[in-house]
Design a protein around this nucleic acid. Structure first.
Length: 184
DNA sequence: TAGCAGATACCTT
DNA sequence: AAGGTATCTGCTA
């Protein structure tokens, strides 16, 4: 765990070097508790030990920079969540898409997509911050387990650093990306 | 153009 | 079988 940008960051790695969870919280204790809860079935892995190159990757991602792809542990997410996260990984940096577009593409419903996105175990590595409501407002973001104004501010800052264009409080339609579009 | 319902929708346990 | 949604759409004024 390490501190930066006014937040505590932490990651969790399993015994096969896959990323199990990432998280950032305003206070260290909450982060520790969160990571421990994610690690309940990972014997021998403690959050404090989980620092390697991906710790720095997480920091760079928070600053809006690209990093090398990371192997994720999908073992604890549902099939539906996996389909949503796979799609999220295809959203280019500097672009966003909407819950509705994702749900149409997957043949699901927008609220179900919201639930899956909200339970993303790997924030920043799986860019759930690139999903916004159809109004192109910034939308909700959870930092301490629940959506908050602070979380929404952080989400907007990350998007801006990634190059997403804003007009007042709304995202410019030119930054919108559609899942049906062929991925380069 | 902002604010408010209703949807009988969708996934999870 | 019930409960929880980090939504969307269409209607009001």
């Amino acid at each position: 765990m390490y501190y930066g940008h006014g937040l505590w960051f932490g990651i969790l790695i399993d015994d096969e070097d896959r990323l199990v969870a990432s998280a950032f919280f305003p206070d260290r204790e909450s982060l520790r508790k969160h990571l421990r809860s994610q690690a309940h079935d990972l014997p021998g892995i403690q959050p404090e030990e989980a620092k390697d190159g991906r710790g720095r990757d997480m920091h760079e991602l928070f600053e809006g920079k690209p990093v090398r792809p990371t192997t994720l542990s999908y073992s604890r997410v549902s099939n539906f969540q996996g389909r949503v996260y796979d799609l999220l990984l295809g959203i280019p940096r500097g672009r966003v898409t909407t819950y509705g577009r994702i749900s149409s593409f997957l043949g699901s419903g927008p609220r179900a997509v919201g639930t899956a996105v909200a339970s993303n175990p790997w924030p920043l590595f799986v860019p759930c911050h690139r999903v916004v409501p159809a109004t192109l407002a910034v939308g909700n973001y959870s930092m301490s387990g629940r959506p908050s104004a602070h979380g929404t501010n952080v989400k907007r800052e990350i998007l801006q650093r990634e190059g997403v264009r804003f007009h007042e409080e709304r995202i410019s339609p030119s930054s919108l990306w559609d899942p049906s579009r062929i991925q380069p």
